[in-house]
C-alpha cells in the first residue's frame, strides 16, 4: 500500500525541503532517468517533462497530512515549499523495507541545490535523449526559446548528467 507515495516521501525526507512544484517535478523525473525507482508517467509540457500523476500524488499526500505544502508569496509570484510533515515522518518510521535513497543522497542534494530553470534544462535534455547532442541542442533552442539557454548552460547540463549517471551506477 502507498508504495509509490512512500518513495516520494522518502525523497522529500532525504532532500529536507524542496521549494517549487517545478523543481520537485524535475527532481523526480531526473531521479527516474537515473534509475531511482519512480514510476510516475511523464509527458512533455511547457517547462519540460511533467507528471500529472505526481501532481495528484502530492495532493493526496498533502490531504493525508504526510507532507506539508506551504504557499510562499514572492515579489510578483508565488511558489510552494514541500517538506515531510511529522505525521509523514511517523508513517515512514514504520516502513522498514522502503527505499531510503541513502546511496543517492549526494545526487538528491545537488539536484535540490540547482535552480528550477537549470533542472528544467537537464530534464529536457534527458527527455530528448537518445537523440544526438547536436539534435538535442537544436531542439532545446527551439522548444525553450524563451528560457535563453546558452551553449555553456547546455554543456553544463550534459556534464551534470554524466556525473550523476556515474554516481548512480
Amino acid at each position: 500500500m502507498l508504495e509509490q507515495h512512500i518513495k516520494v516521501m522518502s525523497l522529500l525526507q532525504k532532500a529536507g525541503d524542496i521549494t517549487g512544484r517545478k523543481k520537485l517535478q524535475k527532481m523526480i523525473y531526473i531521479g527516474k532517468k537515473l534509475g531511482m525507482p519512480f514510476y510516475e508517467k511523464y509527458d512533455f509540457r511547457r517547462y519540460g517533462p511533467y507528471s500529472e500523476e505526481l501532481s495528484l500524488r502530492l495532493e493526496e499526500l498533502h490531504q493525508f497530512g504526510f507532507i506539508s505544502e506551504v504557499r510562499e508569496e514572492k515579489a510578483g509570484y508565488h511558489q510552494y515549499r514541500y517538506e515531510l510533515a511529522p505525521m509523514g515522518e511517523h508513517f515512514l518510521a514504520g516502513k522498514a523495507e522502503r527505499a531510503t535513497f541513502a546511496e543517492q543522497e549526494t545526487i538528491i542534494t545537488e539536484m535540490n541545490a540547482c535552480s528550477s530553470k537549470f533542472l528544467e534544462l537537464i530534464s529536457t535534455v534527458l527527455f530528448l535523449e537518445p537523440a544526438r547532442k547536436e539534435e538535442v541542442i537544436r531542439k532545446v533552442h527551439t522548444l525553450k526559446k524563451t528560457q535563453n539557454y546558452s551553449g555553456e548552460d547546455i554543456d553544463r547540463a550534459y556534464s551534470y548528467i554524466e556525473r550523476w549517471k556515474q554516481q548512480a551506477k
Binding site: 509509490q4 517549487g20 512544484r21 517545478k22 517535478q25 508517467k41 509540457r45 511547457r46 517547462y47 511533467y50 500529472e52 500523476e53 505526481l54 501532481s55 495528484l56 500524488r57 495532493e59 493526496e60 511558489q79
Partner: peptide, 16 residues
C-alpha cells in the same frame, strides 16, 4: 493518481 484522466485547471506554475 492511479488514473489517466484529469479535469480543467488553469495551470500549475504554468506547466499546462
Amino acid at each position: 493518481s492511479d488514473l489517466p484522466y484529469d479535469f480543467y485547471r488553469p495551470g500549475e506554475e504554468e506547466e499546462r
